[in-house]
C-alpha cells in the first residue's frame, strides 16, 4: 500500500513536470505565433509543419551557444541566479489540484501532488521567492543595467505582493478555506469564485502580470532602457533558463487563477458527463477543461503583451500603492459586509 502511494505520487510529479515543461516550451512558440497574428504576420513557420519544432530548435540553439561568465562577476551567484529562478517556478505546481480523484484498480488516486491546508499561502510564498533568482543574477553580473533590473524587480514584486495578498484574503473570507483542493471542490459546476469576487479577480490578475514580469510590467528587463535588464550578461543556457522560468511562471499564474477564480476542473454539466464516462475518463476530462482554462489565460497574457505598452516606473508604483492596495482593502470590506448580511438573513 505504501509503495503504491509512493509510485503514484512519483508518477504524478513526473507527469506534471513534463506537462509544465512542454507547455512552457510551446508557450515560447505560441508567443511568437500570437505576436505574428496580432500584427498581420504568420510567425515562425520554418521548423517543421507550421513551425511545430521551433521550441526544439530554440532549445538546441541555446544549448550549443557559448556560455560566457563575466570575469568580474560573482561566479557562484551568477550560476545560482538562473538555477533559482527555474527552481522556484517549478515549486508552485505542487499544490494545484489538477483534477478530481481518479479510480485506478480500486484505488482513489488524487490528482494533486500534496494538499497542505495552507495551499493558497504556499503559492503566495513561492511567488514571493521567485524574485530572488532575478535579484541574485542581476547583482552577480556586476553590470549597472543588470543591477537596475534587479532593483526594479525587487521593488516591483514587493509592491504588487501586497494587493495580491489582500485580494487573496477577500477570497479566503468568501471560501472559508486555504486548501486549494477544497477551493476547487466548492466551485462545483459553474459556482465559480469569479462571480463572487470580480474585483478581487481583476486585482489578482493585474498583480499576476506584475509578478511574472510580463508586459506592461516588464520593467526589470525592458530592453529599450536597460539593454536586457537582469539578464544583460547572460548567454546560452543560463539565459534560456531565465526565459523558461518566465514562461513557467506564466503557466503557474494561469493555473492559480483558473483554480482560485475560474473553477479549476469544474465545468457546467460535469456530473452528467462524469456519470456517462466513469471514474477514469471523467476526471481526465476535468483536467482537460482546466488545461483549456490555463491556455486561455496564457493567451490573455500574450494578447495583453502585444497590445499594451510598458508602464513608466512612477506609474507602476502609483498603480500598485495608490490604486490597487486601496481597491483591495475596499474589496475586503465589501466582502465582509456582504458575508455578514447574508449570515444575518
Amino acid at each position: 500500500m505504501e509503495l503504491a502511494f509512493i509510485i503514484e505520487k512519483f508518477a504524478l510529479i513526473l507527469v506534471i513536470f513534463l506537462i509544465s515543461l512542454t507547455v512552457a516550451a510551446y508557450s515560447t512558440l505560441a508567443e511568437r505565433k500570437i505576436a505574428g497574428f496580432l500584427q498581420d504576420r504568420v510567425g515562425p513557420n520554418r521548423a517543421g509543419p507550421g513551425g511545430m519544432f521551433q521550441p526544439l530548435a530554440d532549445g538546441l540553439k541555446m544549448f550549443f551557444k557559448e556560455e560566457i561568465i563575466p570575469t568580474d562577476s560573482n561566479k557562484a551567484l551568477f550560476i545560482l541566479g538562473p538555477s533559482l529562478a527555474l527552481f522556484t517556478s517549478f515549486l508552485g505546481s505542487a499544490v494545484i489540484p489538477w483534477g478530481q480523484d481518479i479510480e485506478i484498480a480500486g484505488r482513489q488516486v488524487s490528482l494533486q501532488i500534496t494538499d497542505i491546508n495552507v495551499g493558497m499561502l504556499y503559492i503566495f510564498g513561492v511567488v514571493s521567492l521567485g524574485v530572488y533568482g532575478i535579484m541574485i543574477g542581476g547583482w552577480a553580473s556586476n553590470n549597472k543595467f543588470s543591477l537596475m533590473g534587479a532593483v526594479r524587480a525587487a521593488s516591483q514584486s514587493i509592491s504588487y505582493e501586497i494587493p495580491m495578498g489582500l485580494s487573496i484574503i477577500a477570497l479566503l473570507m468568501a471560501t472559508n478555506t486555504l486548501s486549494m483542493k477544497e477551493i476547487a471542490e466548492q466551485q462545483h459546476g459553474i459556482n465559480w469564485n469569479f462571480f463572487y469576487q470580480p474585483l478581487g479577480f481583476i486585482i489578482f490578475l493585474i498583480c499576476s502580470f506584475a509578478e511574472t514580469n510580463r508586459t506592461p510590467f516588464d520593467l526589470p528587463e525592458c530592453e529599450t532602457e536597460l539593454v536586457g535588464g537582469y539578464h544583460t550578461e547572460y548567454s546560452g543556457f543560463k539565459m534560456g533558463a531565465y526565459m523558461f522560468a518566465e514562461y513557467l511562471n506564466m503557466f503557474l499564474a494561469s493555473a492559480v487563477m483558473s483554480t482560485l477564480y475560474f473553477g479549476a476542473y469544474n465545468y457546467p454539466g460535469m456530473d452528467w458527463v462524469n456519470e456517462l464516462t466513469g471514474p477514469v475518463i471523467g476526471p481526465l476530462i476535468g483536467m482537460a477543461v482546466l488545461m483549456l482554462k490555463i491556455f486561455a489565460f496564457i493567451f490573455l497574457f500574450m494578447w495583453v503583451r502585444w497590445t499594451v505598452p510598458r508602464f513608466r516606473y512612477d506609474q507602476l508604483m502609483n498603480l500598485g500603492w495608490k490604486i490597487l492596495i486601496p481597491l483591495a482593502i475596499a474589496n475586503i470590506v465589501i466582502t465582509g459586509i456582504v458575508i455578514t448580511i447574508i449570515d444575518k438573513l
Partner: peptide, 9 residues
C-alpha cells in the same frame, strides 16, 4: 519573501 528582499535591495 519580503523583508529579506528589502535587505538585499
Amino acid at each position: 519573501g519580503a523583508i529579506m528582499v528589502l535587505f538585499l535591495f
